[in-house]
Design a protein around this nucleic acid. Structure first.
Length: 269
DNA sequence: AAGACACGCAACCGCAAACAA
DNA sequence: ATTGTTTGCGGTTGCGTGTCT
């Protein structure tokens, strides 16, 4: 649900004109921030606030951009597959929401955290309470995500160990021209955040690459126009989220193949 | 119809890590 | 090496909305 905006300055009087604003963002503030970042990028967040003429902390600006204004964010509700991904990643990583978010292009850590706290955790707790079986319920709070956790049953999805490379995917170019990305970059132009964002996405694993899905014939590469190409982020010099957002079906493919790709990686390691 | 309660989301807070001076 | 600043993260809170009684 979207709450009716009661903006931070709604009740402020003139004497507090210089005070830092808090609370919900007004459309005007959003526009200022968006314009500032789109056209000038980010040096420091406090300077962004200043240059945009916002009486907001840099911290608040960063949060607003990351969680709401970024052009590569998915707007639609979290899908069933994404939910499964969240559960799986939470099992393997614990409450490292930013890391989980980094593996779910278009989703924010806040969004995932909220989703987990408000829905999944509740549901899993209810399920655990209703069944005597202790089984695969993910740890909640505390020491979850420990590398020492007992391995899941064979019929469970294998969680992705943190040390594995993070996967992005690309649809191979339809006409094979240059092996380029079928669509890179977000619709609203280059993301001024791409450099910093990408750095946090990097995963220090061995480089890995695998073709998955479609009717991959392997080898040769490039023949199969429907093939989804999975890459470790180490292979990418752009923000994978930008790519995935613009490729119809790519997200679903990515999610559905996440586990099989992981299994494959397991066998390689 | 109205109040109570539950839910979901946006945003704040405090802390730690990273970075710069 | 130390200190100050900025950034990023996870936990938590506040509040609007929907549902129930």
């Amino acid at each position: 649900m979207v709450r009716k905006p009661i903006h931070a300055d709604a009740g402020a009087n003139g004497t507090e004109a210089n005070k830092e604003r808090k609370g919900l963002w007004s459309p005007e503030e959003d526009e200022r921030l968006f314009t500032q970042i789109t056209y000038h990028g980010v040096s420091t967040w406090s300077s962004v606030a200043q240059l945009a003429g916002l009486r907001r902390s840099g911290k608040s600006c960063r949060l607003r951009w990351m969680n709401y204004l970024r052009p590569d964010l998915k707007k639609e509700p979290i899908s069933k597959r994404e939910e499964e991904t969240i559960i799986s990643l939470q099992q393997s990583l614990g409450n490292r929401w930013s890391t989980i978010a980094a593996r779910m292009p278009g989703r924010t850590d806040n969004e995932i955290k909220n989703y987990w706290n408000s829905r999944i955790r509740k549901r899993l707790n209810a399920a655990r309470d209703s069944t005597a079986k202790p089984a695969p319920a993910p740890a909640v709070g505390g020491e979850e995500g420990s590398a020492n956790a007992a391995p899941p049953p064979a019929d469970q999805h294998v969680p992705i160990p943190a040390r594995f490379p993070v996967f992005g995917c690309q649809l191979l170019d339809l006409d094979g021209a240059g092996g380029g990305m079928s669509s890179a970059g977000s619709g609203s132009g280059e993301s001024p955040q791409s450099s910093t964002t990408t750095s946090t996405q990097q995963n220090t694993g061995d480089e890995s690459e695998a073709s998955v899905g479609g009717n991959s014939s392997g080898g040769g590469g490039g023949d199969d126009i429907n093939m989804i190409h999975f890459l470790s982020f180490d292979d990418l010099d752009y923000y994978p989220g930008d790519l995935l957002m613009d490729v119809p079906g790519a997200m679903d493919a990515w999610e559905s193949e996440l586990y099989s790709a992981n299994s494959m990686m397991s066998s390689l390691c």
